[in-house]
């Protein structure tokens, strides 16, 4: 599949055809506007045609009709979530389009999503396979195109949630639910929040920075420690920078041991300790 380049339809060497194409484009844009198609100005000509085409087949434009900004579900395609006034069970959907990520552990994240009735309708009309695209946006301000890398996972939208296994920890992640358009480009339906997955081991940074409190300075008469200006506002008012020292041998051993113990812990070495509280409330299970 070759992606269609955006500017192929308006080459400067053919002003006439360019104008013609431009005229066509303006016409399509106007139609797209009347259908409430978002992102229409960024679409190529074939994309515009495809975007407008299904709408034209379904609803012929009546010039006198008021412009509708969103396709309205008709009786034949009812909104999947009828408004509920009863309070006997939780709703399946809240009728708002969103995608939310949550970190489970350093190597597992969870995503859940919801769509407005209009968006469900659009999705069902197009019947395109939907993918969850996960972006690695660690240490960058994500603008939709500058991720370090991304990967796509086919998902079943009706499940409304998905778990994603990862191969590296301590990342900032963001995700899109979207689909591939016939021209090979990816269209985002909804974008998630940005999350940070936890660190899975000892930090590689060992620069030491000591912080005292105002109370500390008062206790020491303000003179014994050379305290610099505050980086944090109120509480940690006085700071001084420690020397950077290489780790001593015994410290390395100390850390190795601590790391092993912590690793045992995160692998479930000590059974979930907080569980005792509830375990105490259970009827006997061990005795026959």
């Amino acid at each position: 599949m070759t992606p269609i380049r955006r500017k192929s339809d308006s080459k400067p060497s053919r002003p006439k055809s360019g104008r013609r194409a431009g005229g066509r484009r303006a016409e399509l844009l106007a139609k797209a506007k009347s259908f409430g198609i978002k992102g229409r100005h960024r679409m190529t000509l074939p994309q515009l045609i495809r975007a407008v085409e299904p709408n034209r087949k379904k609803r012929p434009i009546v010039t006198a009709a008021p412009i509708q900004t969103r396709p309205v579900p008709t009786a034949a395609t009812p909104a999947p979530i009828p408004p509920k006034q009863k309070y006997d069970d939780l709703p399946w959907s809240y009728g708002e389009t969103e995608l939310v990520l949550m970190p489970v552990d350093p190597f597992l994240i969870h995503a859940y999503w919801d769509f407005s009735p209009e968006d469900w309708e659009t999705i069902q009309r197009h019947r395109r396979p939907v993918v969850l695209r996960v972006y690695d946006v660690t240490m960058i301000e994500f603008d939709g195109a500058n991720a370090h890398h991304y990967f796509d996972l086919p998902v079943t939208l009706e499940t409304q949630n998905w778990y994603v296994r990862l191969w590296s920890a301590e990342k900032s992640l963001c995700a899109d639910l979207g689909w591939w358009l016939p021209d090979g480009s990816f269209q985002t339906l909804v974008r998630s929040n940005v999350i940070q997955t936890p660190r899975a081991g000892v930090s590689i940074f060992d620069e030491v920075r000591w912080v005292g409190t105002q109370r500390a300075r008062r206790a020491r008469g303000g003179g014994s420690i050379r305290l610099g200006p505050a980086r944090t506002r109120r509480f940690a008012a006085d700071v001084w920078r420690g020397r950077r020292e290489p780790l001593q041998k015994e410290q390395l051993a100390f850390w190795k041991r601590l790391e092993e113990e912590a690793a045992g812990l995160t692998a479930g070495g000590i059974a979930g300790l907080s569980s005792l509280r509830i375990r105490t409330m259970t009827p006997p299970e061990t005795e026959a």
Binding site: P198, V208, W210, V211, G212, A216, G268, G272
Partner: peptide, 21 residues
Amino acid sequence: PVNQEAVPSASSWGNKGYSDV
């Protein structure tokens, strides 16, 4: 009163040490 400044890592005391439970 003088202690090191650091950002603790995301964690919990549940089984496996994160939010799994």
